[in-house]
Nucleic acid binder design. Sequence first.
DNA 1: CCCCTTCTGTAATATCTGATCCGGCACAGC
DNA 2: GCTGTGCCGGATCAGATATTACAGAAGGGG
Lengths: 280, 280
Amino acid sequence: MDLVRDAMPSLTTSEKRAAQALVADYPLLGLETVARFADRAGVSAPSILRFIGRIGFASYADFQRRLMAEVEARLLSPLAKADAGSPSTRKRAPRTAFAEAAADNIAETFRRLPNGEFEAVATLLADPRRPVHLIGGRFTDALARYMTAHLRILRPNVSHLEGQRDNWHDQLLDMGNRDVLFLIDIRRYQDDLVAFAAEAARLKVTTIVLTDQWLSPAARSARHVLPARIAVPSAWDSSVALLALIEALVAEVTARRGAESRSRMAAIETIRRQGQPQSR
Amino acid sequence: MDLVRDAMPSLTTSEKRAAQALVADYPLLGLETVARFADRAGVSAPSILRFIGRIGFASYADFQRRLMAEVEARLLSPLAKADAGSPSTRKRAPRTAFAEAAADNIAETFRRLPNGEFEAVATLLADPRRPVHLIGGRFTDALARYMTAHLRILRPNVSHLEGQRDNWHDQLLDMGNRDVLFLIDIRRYQDDLVAFAAEAARLKVTTIVLTDQWLSPAARSARHVLPARIAVPSAWDSSVALLALIEALVAEVTARRGAESRSRMAAIETIRRQGQPQSR
DNA sequence: CCCCTTCTGTAATATCTGATCCGGCACAGC
DNA sequence: GCTGTGCCGGATCAGATATTACAGAAGGGG
């Protein structure tokens, strides 16, 4: 955009006409084909290409890539428009920005949940006859543990796959089409998890993949995919939305199993109290 | 968008995969070429076209025109993010209520952070000369693990207290006034954690307690207390705000340690690559 | 366990698109 | 008025793209 504005003076007549047309309905005109762009600007296709070349792009495709990125940025943060205009909002503490992004991620994640997927996954997890196995990546495995801890209370046949890679594969041998695999894998996807998912698919295991918006390759092997937003202003990705989804699933499963899980919870509570006398 | 979500149940497996990929990265993925769309969704190009056809478009070009129009509308009115009151404004799904509550919890948690506490805690965690020990409760220990995994990358001397209660106390023996204990304890507070915090306080260990808004009794033994909101419409409490705080802390520590942590991260990455040859 | 239906990817095709070339045009300087 | 320079657009080409046809794979029901 600024690129276009700055180059404006040094443009020829028809190039300027192209620039004006582009600015007039920015940025979408640039995402059309060269022919339509030329038509709407009232110039020829070669002029458009010369114009694109002059403002520094190697090809029309490059130019469109750049536009796409800009559109994406604007769509993600509708407020981004303000950042040029009001330098007063600058000082906001970084952690506030973090909190906002995290809250946004949750809202966006739930808003985009494919219809029926959530329910389908909840149904699988609520069925005690279908053994559930959970596993996560380098960081997200902690979330898998968190979920395991809750599910174990709600139903039997819940296992968290621990330890070494070889160990996982040993457990795979006993899985079949009745088993459910809940796998978490986000950006900088782990090869071993992807391979594991593929192997599980081969054995007809029903796989659920909880991943980020760009989808782990493991999603290809999955029956159900739950994509979550993970981008925050930090050097790391955020698992907040993943956790929110997990908790929503646990809540749903709890609601569905109603009485059964309640009695099971009571029983577990009793055992815990007996086995673990008050400290001190 | 709604078109895609509503059609979801009646789609075949690979069509659903296409739909999921589209929704996950909406709407820009749809503006790419069929080939790239197919690649990112992990299906073949014809599957994409069948999918487009099934949701009612005559051609891929038609579909893209429609997307363009939607993008334009959203770019013009930044508020369009709150989805337009579609005629089918069915009773809000409970999971939406859950998402809103979780997002609210994060916002509220950060708003109410005592001034300076966050920074003080970050300072402690960023100091590599002060050993950090992390531990959590029945469910929240998974969060402690998550935090441990990150901190270990940023600095040395990070340990997660595992295993049995007796084991913890053994580790206590080696702690002193230079050590930092990061303890997570929320509602239905655990006696053993409270006792552990008290013991640590007696040994002059600098204790940080991450807890809920009603404060664990362990907070009495703490130098720093970080309270988070945990109430959601569910039978369980939510750890989402806890995780958000943890991630914000990790981000802050990362920022403070800057270059040092970067080189450390690089070193760790190298070791990982050597010790873990590509799978297959 | 096998057959039938449905689905899905490979391969071929026809169309479209971006990019280039070159002839013509306008304008400025002489 | 003439010439030379820079600009523009129609025609053209190679490559990419959407689309279709088909055959093999998968899944479900008897």
